[in-house]
């Protein structure tokens, strides 16, 4: 019998999801995407549920995407944005969480600069915790929307060659994507300067290379990761110019991939740093599809965490 609900109450990371749970989210997102194409883009599924978007880091795309997803599901939603600096002076994360918990929200969507912040909240709150990015750890809904976008374009994930190029060391998107793609049988290659490769990747079942041409050769999917400009101060590479010439995704490099390769990027993009504008804006790019699909995938996650089909229908 097909799975109809997630086995866990929280979405802390892809690490906790089984392959059939991932497929369930993607299948559910198909239905949610249809909702977003209606004139009246709203279903009553989460009516009466309170969802708090608790963001300790600036975010435009992810927060907006969650908020739209919540509103389309008829949840009562509110945004709490807290600058990390004020937390240092004042209330701890635990106290903030206990105060929010006292108001009985159904779910808390958390974005935080510290890895493990969602785990900490999940031990305090009765509400379901949805990880919207915790430090360098995971960004599970990003990996799910990436997988949804790949599946939409390619019809499958298993057996595809996916090349992930960029700052692997500091990327939560990388971790979540590696976990998800390997669970679903994709052949994952990762590529970065040696200074930006974390340990342990081969044990996670991915191929590691510092040569972009090798990574993208014959690829079905090229996924670029953002180079955070502040990394320059860390001395991870000599200059943005050298980074672009050595690792930047240019049309010439894309030409080494399969003719129907898709180019992905979690955003925000740095044009001319990790990706040439011609590639970002070109025919292979699905970067804006990713953004569009983010809403459907987040609707699916929220719906399933709220109880899925056991609770209410999407009618």
């Amino acid at each position: 019998m097909a799975l109809t609900a997630l086995r866990q109450k929280h979405l802390l990371g892809i690490a906790d999801l089984s392959p059939d749970e991932i497929v369930l989210v993607l299948d559910t997102a198909d239905a949610m995407k249809e909702v977003g194409q209606r004139t009246i883009k709203k279903v009553p599924t989460l009516r009466g549920r309170t969802v708090i978007n608790l963001f300790f880091e600036p975010s435009t795309r992810t927060r907006t995407s969650f908020e739209i997803a919540e509103k389309r599901l008829s949840a009562d939603t509110l945004n709490v944005a807290i600058a990390s600096s004020s937390v240092v002076k004042g209330e701890t994360l635990v106290d903030t969480a206990m105060n929010l918990e006292a108001m009985s929200p159904s779910m808390i969507v958390l974005r935080h600069a510290s890895a493990g912040a969602c785990h900490l909240l999940s031990r305090i709150c009765k509400a379901s915790i949805v990880n919207a990015g915790d430090g360098m750890h995971e960004h599970p809904t990003q990996a799910l929307l990436d997988a949804f976008t790949i599946r939409e374009r390619k019809g499958r994930l298993a057996g595809l060659k996916v090349a992930i190029v960029g700052d692997l060391l500091h990327s939560r998107v990388l971790r979540s994507n590696v976990l998800l793609l390997t669970k679903l049988g994709a052949e994952v290659w990762v590529c970065a300067p040696a200074t930006l490769i974390p340990p342990g990747l081969p044990q996670m079942g991915v191929r590691v290379t510092t040569r972009v041409d090798e990574a993208v050769a014959g690829a079905d999917v090229i996924m670029m990761l953002r180079i955070q400009l502040e990394r320059m101060q860390g001395g991870f590479f000599p200059s943005l110019r050298e980074y672009f010439t050595t690792f930047g995704m240019t049309e010439a490099r894309v030409a080494r991939a399969k003719p129907d390769v898709i180019i992905m990027h979690p955003g925000p993009i740095n044009r001319g740093v990790e990706i040439a504008s011609e590639v970002a804006d070109g025919a292979h790019s699905v970067i804006l599809d990713q953004v569009a699909n983010g809403v459907a995938v987040r609707m699916a996650v929220l719906y399933l965490l709220a109880g899925g089909a056991d609770n209410e229908t999407v009618a």
């Binding site: 690490a15 890895a115 360098m136 750890h137 974390p198």
Partner: peptide
């Protein structure tokens, strides 16, 4: 690998 997988 442990710190890397935990994002620490």
């Amino acid at each position: 690998p442990v710190a890397a997988s935990l994002g620490l």
